[in-house]
Simulated assay, not measured.
Amino acid sequence: MLDFAIFSFLVGTVFGRRFTVIVLLPLILGLALVTVVLNTHLAPSEGGKRFAAGAIALQLGYLAGSIANGWHSRRRTKDEGRWDDRSAD
C-alpha cells in the first residue's frame, strides 16, 4: 500500500506543477480504475484502503506541486528584480 501511495504522491506532484485543479477529477477516476485492475486478488476492503491512501496521497502531491510551482515562480520573479520599483542608478 505504501508503494502505491508514494507513486500517487509523485504523480500528483508532477500534475500539480503543470495543471489546474480540474485535473484532479480525471486523476482520481483513473486511480480508481488502476486500483480495480491491480488489486483483483485482494479483498474489497483492502482495495478500498489502497484507493483511499492513493487518493489522499495524490491530492497531497498535487498540493505540494502547486506550492513548489508558486514558490519557484515567485523566486524567479524576485531574482529578476521585478519586485523592486526602484530604478537602477
Rank of each mutant, 00 (worst) to 15 (best):
N39V: 06
E46W: 06
S45I: 13
I56C: 00
A64M: 13
L38Q: 11
H41C: 00
A5R: 01
F4A: 14
V36R: 10
L29F: 15
L42N: 07
L27H: 01
T20I: 02
V11Q: 05
G65R: 05
L31F: 07
A52H: 04
N39E: 06
A68D: 07
L63P: 00
L38Y: 09
G48A: 15
W71F: 12
A55K: 01
V36T: 06
V11G: 00
A57D: 05
P26W: 08
G65H: 05
V36C: 07
R17P: 04
L60P: 00
D84R: 13
D79C: 04
R86A: 07
W83V: 08
G48H: 06
N69M: 09
Q59P: 06
A43S: 15
E46M: 01
P44G: 09
A32G: 10
R82E: 13
T35F: 00
I22M: 01
S45G: 02
H72Y: 14
L60M: 13
D79V: 06
R18A: 10
G12P: 00
Y62T: 02
E80N: 11
V36A: 14
V14Y: 15
G65L: 00
Y62K: 01
S45F: 13
V14A: 15
F4S: 13
D85T: 05
K49A: 15
L10C: 08
W71I: 07
A43C: 03
R18F: 14
D3C: 00
A88H: 01
V34P: 00
D79F: 03
V37R: 07
G70F: 09
R76W: 04
G16V: 04
V23R: 07
F7R: 13
L31K: 09
L2R: 10
H72D: 15
R74A: 15
R50Y: 08
A64Q: 09
E80Y: 13
A55M: 12
A52V: 15
